Simulated assay, not measured.
Amino acid sequence: MMNQSPSTIRNGLSILHQVLEGHVGVYWKGGVLQKTITDPSFHLKLPFITHYEPVQVTLQTDQVRDIPCGTKGGVMINFEKIEVVNQLHKDYVHDTLLSYRVQYDNTWIYDKIHHKINQFCSFHSLQQVYIDVFDQIDEKMKDALQGDCTRYAQGIEIISVCVKKPTIPESIRRNFEQMEEECTKVS
């Protein structure tokens, strides 16, 4: 038997539930996703027969953390945090959940950003990733994620991506700092 959280048990027992502003309510009857989607307010459902989940339809920021990747030259770096601002549009909630379930952002945000950042790193040197094209990574990731969502999950809009500077091995970081100091002295 599956362990159920107290909120899952309450959800199963309750007749009345509230959909909060910024969300819509989706329902499963006998395990089948229903086409009914409710707006914010109080609603009724049949206990044990109908399961309810709130789904956010306003802007949300997903934070993808600790993404290790190897550069073209084989140096391992780590992106500690990448933020993806996105929105699931209300008109696409049913189709998105039917195909990708409630945790659709695992597939289209978390897993995709891991894959896309690793692809990017594998085609670029450490110098390029850390300095030369770092200012372009945000837009490249946004375009890559949106391209896949447009193709396969049309209701998900990627608003922006913010990639934090990766951590690099300490010895290499010191070399970059020394080179920067030398360039400053020459100027």
Rank of each mutant, 00 (worst) to 15 (best):
S7F: 11
T8H: 11
I9V: 09
R10W: 07
R10K: 09
N11Q: 12
N11P: 02
G12P: 03
L13P: 03
L13M: 10
L13Q: 11
L13R: 04
S14A: 09
S14D: 06
I15V: 14
I15M: 12
L16K: 12
H17R: 05
H17V: 02
H17W: 06
Q18Y: 06
G22A: 07
H23K: 05
H23N: 11
H23L: 03
K29I: 00
G30V: 00
G30D: 05
G30R: 05
G31M: 00
V32T: 10
V32M: 08
V32L: 09
L33C: 06
T36R: 08
T36Q: 08
T36P: 01
T36I: 07
I37N: 02
I37D: 02
D39W: 06
D39K: 11
S41T: 15
S41R: 15
F42G: 07
H43K: 01
L44M: 15
K45I: 13
L46N: 11
L46M: 11
P47F: 04
P47W: 01
F48C: 13
T50S: 13
T50F: 08
H51L: 08
H51P: 05
H51M: 10
Y52F: 10
E53F: 06
E53P: 05
P54I: 04
V55L: 05
Q56A: 15
Q56R: 15
V57L: 08
L59E: 14
T61E: 01
D62K: 09
D62Y: 02
Q63C: 12
V64S: 08
V64G: 08
R65N: 12
R65V: 10
C69F: 05
C69D: 06
G70V: 13
G70Y: 14
K72V: 01
K72A: 04
G73N: 15
G74Y: 13
G74R: 09
V75C: 02
M76N: 09
M76E: 12
I77Y: 05
I77A: 01
F79A: 05
E80Q: 11
E83Q: 15
V85W: 04
V85Y: 04
Q87E: 13
Q87K: 13
L88T: 02
H89K: 07
H89F: 07
K90N: 08
K90P: 02
K90G: 05
D91I: 02
D91E: 11
Y92P: 06
Y92R: 05
D95W: 03
L97S: 02
L98T: 14
S99R: 10
S99A: 13
Y100W: 14
V102L: 13
Y104M: 01
N106Q: 08
T107L: 10
W108A: 02
Y110S: 15
Y110T: 15
D111V: 14
D111W: 15
K112G: 00
I113T: 01
I113G: 00
H114E: 07
H115Q: 10
H115P: 04
K116N: 09
N118A: 12
N118C: 08
Q119E: 14
F123T: 12
H124Y: 03
H124P: 01
H124L: 03
Q127K: 15
Q127A: 13
Q128F: 06
V129W: 00
V129H: 03
